[in-house]
């Protein structure tokens, strides 16, 4: 049974700002469906007492001391900017304030 349809793929693509053709939507709906089903099968095996894994390595608490280091020179920081003004990145107008 299919759990991911084309509309859901289109919505996700919109949220991720990815432009997909109709063919791609169809293909990805099928592929994502396989992935979701595979994960669902794992979930069936994993009992509630198995904690979720977010990282394959058994590492925790990797910290750094709160000591400043030399930041990027402003020219380097702006080197990749398509446009800059007064040391700031210039971007197209923002339609909506968060």
């Amino acid at each position: 049974m299919s759990t991911i349809n084309r509309d859901e793929v289109a919505r996700l693509a919109g949220l991720a700002r990815i432009d997909l053709t109709q063919d791609e939507l169809t293909r990805l709906a099928g592929e994502l469906d396989v992935i979701v089903e595979s994960v669902a099968r794992v979930s069936e095996i994993a009992t509630p007492d198995v904690p979720a894994t977010s990282h394959p390595l058994p590492l925790t608490n990797v910290y750094r001391d709160d000591v400043p280091e030399e930041p990027l020179p402003v020219a380097d920081a702006l080197a990749g900017a398509p446009s800059a003004e007064g040391g700031r990145f210039a971007v197209p107008q923002i339609l909506e304030e968060d």
Partner: peptide
């Protein structure tokens, strides 16, 4: 203000 602005400048 944001409405009617032509472009925006960003300081990180």
């Amino acid at each position: 203000r944001i409405h009617g602005a032509e472009y925006s400048l960003v300081d990180y």
